[in-house]
Design a protein around this nucleic acid. Structure first.
Lengths: 250, 250
DNA sequence: TCGTTCATAAGTGTGTCCACGTTTTACTGC
DNA sequence: GCAGTAAAACGTGGACACACTTATGAACGA
């Protein structure tokens, strides 16, 4: 287990820039990315001791990082039973999707008002990077960059509370995508991201909002939120058997 | 300083029910209430050691509580320099006010859809309690209960992410009220709260939303967000002198 | 000579780690 | 299948080191 974690987190797949700041941030960011890039599957146990060994820090640091992640609902902290990567339920996924519609609408409108040309250029670069990741098959980094796009949008909105909320929502959405996205359909959101940026650049608020809403619709439709993918609910998993039996009986 | 804190937090002014749950929660709730009830002014330093002595727990517990409060933006955690009660700036206050409009609208609509009669009765009780506090001059508890009202509303909305966000926004709003509310006008929101509950009870969504928006308007107008009350901006503080001098020169 | 400023040093308080107690969990034997 | 035991992991408290703050004193300038 210890070795598995080591291997997963160690393989910093993308040679992302060396993290600056304190140890906390470093640990936090590494675990965060590993989760969003699906190198750590939902439900994986995150042992404090194992992580401490991996990062070469004491459990105190790990604890703080896990606490932060728990606050963003990315990991679940079970008292006396350690931390696990969160497994958003279908109901949670629906609530998050709803909340995002509320927030993204407001953010989009604000972004149209406040975006600077520099920021827009930045966003375009980000989308290109995202596309590159999907093109070369790096789905994990793609999902992360896709989330980054929505985060940068929130940054342009110039509203700190909304930005914080968005961060939590985007993280959880990435987790949901990791868990529920149907395998065959690829997650190619970069095209819609591009259109959105164009609308913002033209200061077309109505169109930008409309594009954003459609974009969120597409994200939802790519997921099979209608039925639980692989839950622990045995009744749901074997519901077809029950249906069949009832049919036979009738 | 140690003694001051002891005195402030110890005087559990309102004989609120004995906190249940773990030590963390107890410490968190006590500090939280002390801040919202203005027994701890914005800017007050929160020494870990002093708090540990007051609550009879080690710094580990205090640290966790402070970390939670920091996540809700109620206290500010300055690296290597300890924690202080947050002092929302005017700009932050405006952003929070904006974010609340977005969230409260959504919450109100959801509450109209989902509220049970039991929950509504609960809310009515809460408003009566709030009114009682203001009537007997307990402004601190009044502000807290007023916040509790908006939190219960979010609970009725049945959306966990929105509830979490609302919790952070309400806390910060209480802090802002504590800091910026003009002294003469009393904070008597219970009447509007009552009307709001009635509209929800009658499932009148349009009216409920309208009432909520007006309510938020009133909250804003009670504050003097136009000019910073007691900021560190010397130019703003002595602007009248500058005006006078210019007048004399012209 | 007085006031200001910079440097140095003491003191307070946070950052980190480690060890112990307790809970949980897994395994083994009945 | 159940109970008991052992191992692993988490919860908590305390200790030490380091960073920051504050106070004291000396040097410079007015």
């Amino acid at each position: 287990m210890n070795d598995r974690l080591q291997q997963i987190i160690g393989q910093s797949g993308n040679p992302r820039e060396v993290r600056t700041g304190t140890q906390d941030d470093m640990v936090y960011a590494h675990i965060f990315d590993a989760i969003l890039e699906q190198r750590l599957a939902p439900g994986t146990k995150l042992s404090e001791e194992a992580l401490g060994e991996i990062f070469g820090v004491s459990r105190t640091i790990i604890r703080r990082a896990l606490s932060r992640l728990a606050h963003e609902q990315v990991v679940l902290l079970r008292p006396n039973r350690g931390a696990v990567v969160a497994e958003p339920s279908l109901e949670e996924a629906r609530q998050i999707s709803f909340a995002r519609r509320i927030v993204e609408r407001a953010i989009t409108e604000l972004a149209v008002d406040h975006a600077t040309s520099e920021q827009i250029a930045n966003m375009k670069r980000l989308v290109r990077e995202e596309q590159a990741c999907f093109d070369k098959g790096d789905r994990g980094s793609g999902i992360r960059l896709s989330g980054e796009f929505h985060l940068q949008l929130a940054l342009m909105a110039n509203n700190a509370p909304l930005l914080n909320f968005q961060r939590s929502l985007v993280s959880q959405t990435s987790l949901i995508i990791a868990r529920y996205e149907t395998g065959n359909r690829s997650h190619c959101s970069y095209d819609e991201h591009n259109q959105l940026i164009k609308a913002i650049e033209q200061r077309d608020k109505a169109r930008a909002v409309e594009l954003m809403m459609h974009h969120l619709d597409h994200i939802d439709h790519k997921l099979n939120l209608q039925d639980d993918g692989a839950s622990g609910d045995l009744h749901a998993v074997f519901s077809h058997l029950i249906r069949d039996r009832k049919k036979g009986a009738s």
